[in-house]
Computed example of a mutant assay.
Amino acid sequence: MIPAAFEYTKPSTVDEAVQALADGGEDAKVLAGGQSLIPMLRLRLAAPTLLVDLGGLGELRGVRDDGDALVIGAMTRYADLLRDPLVRDHAPLLAQATATVADRQVRHLGTIGGSLAEADPAGDLPSVAVALDVSFEVVGPDGWRTISAADFFVDFLTTALGDGEMLAALRVPKQDGWGTHYEKFNRVAQAWSIVGVAVAVRRENGTIAEARVGLTNMGNRPVRARAVEEALTGAPATVDAVSSAAARAAEGADPPADVWASAEYRSHLATVLTRRAVVAAGGIHAS
């Protein structure tokens, strides 16, 4: 299909982009990578009157070291994340999840900010952001503010971004000394996750000192598996202990039921994939 008519602008600065969004009002839409938005426009599932293309904002691209965290521009493409040595060394979980996104074509055009701002609970990166306590730098008509990942994702395809605001960057705490793994199950290659699990664990003297677990597609927004984290913290780094903790993966979640999977099946998958991800992240072997 052909999209409904809309106006188009490509600002060259963040200030110009904010002004364009303010002028466009509630019917203005940001174009980041466009890998989700363009199909929605063609199907007329979205019909903005103004499209604000952020492709010209080089200041919103790239990764920089900022002490205990990495600051990543919202317009940084997936492929650039995968090649970046800072991401590889200090945020491996982000790299692992990004490597599973769609296919190479999408990863060369899609952006991390576009994915996170879309807030699709079946997307791979929101669960990583929640698990790692990522914070988001947002800019709008009233200036800059910071939103935690826990508060950013409000509901299905809904974020805490206000009128005229856009995601500019994210601050990712470094995972030095942590083991990480992203495990997902999808029906065919390149499809959305039926369920995904993002895990970071820190081992100490044969035990799991800390654990962080985020779930993909187990609710109307990414889910932090707190029950699993609590069960893992202080537990021996053994397969039996991990299996016991993973059995609590669906606690507090509200998995959807659709044509691809029932809620019960998703809960089962969450348990199985959490066990696999924790075992892999912690380098745990059967005794």
Results as ranks from 00 to 15, higher is better:
Ala4Val: 12
Ala4Gln: 15
Phe6Ile: 07
Lys10Asn: 04
Lys10Ile: 05
Val14Ala: 12
Val14Leu: 15
Glu16Trp: 11
Gly24Gln: 03
Asp27Thr: 15
Leu31Ala: 07
Gly33Ile: 05
Ser36Thr: 09
Leu37Ile: 08
Arg42His: 14
Leu45Ala: 12
Leu45His: 11
Pro48Asp: 01
Pro48Leu: 02
Leu51Cys: 09
Val52His: 04
Gly55Lys: 14
Gly55Arg: 12
Leu57Thr: 10
Leu57His: 10
Asp65Tyr: 14
Leu70Gly: 09
Leu70Met: 13
Val71Cys: 10
Gly73Arg: 12
Ala79Trp: 01
Ala79Ser: 07
Ala79Thr: 04
Ala79Asp: 02
Asp80Asn: 13
Leu81Phe: 06
Leu81Val: 08
Pro85Gly: 10
Ala91Met: 08
Ala95Ser: 14
Ala95Thr: 04
Ala97Asn: 06
Thr98Arg: 11
Ala102Ile: 03
Arg104Gly: 03
Ala117Gln: 04
Ala117Gly: 01
Ala119Arg: 09
Pro121His: 04
Leu125Gly: 05
Ala129Phe: 00
Val130Lys: 11
Ser135Pro: 01
Phe136Lys: 02
Val138Tyr: 10
Trp144Ile: 05
Asp151Glu: 14
Val154Cys: 09
Thr159Pro: 05
Ala160Met: 13
Ala160Pro: 08
Glu165Ile: 11
Val172Phe: 10
Val172Glu: 01
Trp178Cys: 03
His181Ile: 00
Phe185Gly: 08
Asn186Met: 15
Gln190Gly: 02
Trp192Met: 14
Ser193Asn: 09
Gly196Ile: 01
Val197Thr: 09
Ala200Thr: 02
Val201Ala: 00
Arg203Val: 01
Glu204Tyr: 06
Asn205His: 12
Gly206Val: 02
Gly206Arg: 09
Leu215Cys: 03
Pro222Cys: 06
Val223Arg: 12
Val223Lys: 06
Arg224Val: 00
Ala227Tyr: 07
Glu230Asp: 15
Leu232Cys: 00
Gly234Asp: 09
Ala237Leu: 13
Ala237Cys: 13
Ala237Lys: 12
Asp240Glu: 15
Ala246Leu: 08
Ala250Asp: 04
Ala257Trp: 08
Asp258Gln: 12
Asp258Trp: 13
Val259Leu: 14
Tyr265Ile: 07
Tyr265Ala: 05
His268Pro: 00
Ala270Trp: 00
Thr271Gly: 06
Val272Asp: 02
Val272Gln: 07
Val272Glu: 03
Leu273Gly: 02
Val278Glu: 01
Val278Thr: 00
Val278Gly: 01
Val279Arg: 08
Ala281Asn: 12
Gly282Trp: 04
Ala286Tyr: 07
Ser287Ala: 11
